[in-house]
Each structure stands twice: as C-alpha cells, then as structure tokens.
C-alpha cells in the first residue's frame, strides 16, 4: 500500500488511496475513517482521470518552436 501510495503521488494522484483494516465490531472507527477520508477527497477535488480531455496543446506556440522540430 505504501508503495502504491508513493507511486500515485509521483504521478500526481497523491492522497487518493487509503487502506484501513476495520473489524465489524469497530463501528466508531469505520465512521471516523470514512468521514476523514471523504473530507480529504473533497478538498482534493474530482479525480483528474475522469476529467482528463487529452493533452492541452497551447494555441499559440511560443517563438522557441520556430524552425525546430517539435519533439515528443
């Protein structure tokens, strides 16, 4: 889990993954964890994967582009 969290953080999806072991007897803990994580996610905003519309290529290319291959 720590590994996956670190990897997601590296590519810009940090803080959106959480794992917690909760027993069926720990109702309070369940409420607390879900409430906290929900609050955290609300601050982060909608998942960027869902809203991603492809790369934003600038309309007017800066002058550095003149006479040069774009390069990918």
């Amino acid at each position: 889990m720590s590994f996956l969290q670190a990897l997601l953080d590296f590519m810009g999806l940090g803080g959106r993954l959480h794992l917690e072991w909760i027993s069926s007897a720990e109702a309070r803990k369940f409420v607390q964890v879900v409430t906290e994580f929900t609050a955290k996610i609300k601050v982060l905003g909608p998942n960027p994967i869902k809203g991603w519309q492809g790369p934003e290529i600038p309309d007017s290319l800066p002058s550095i582009f003149e006479g040069r291959a774009l390069g990918v």
Partner: peptide, 17 residues
Amino acid sequence: EVYSQEERFKRWSYEFE
C-alpha cells in the same frame, strides 16, 4: 517532483497518451 500534483498528472498523462 517539483511539479504540483495537478501538473504531474497532466504531464504524465501526456506521456502515457
């Protein structure tokens, strides 16, 4: 890792795409 989370996601998505 100097980019913000939002910027990182955009840049990596451009690469992956």
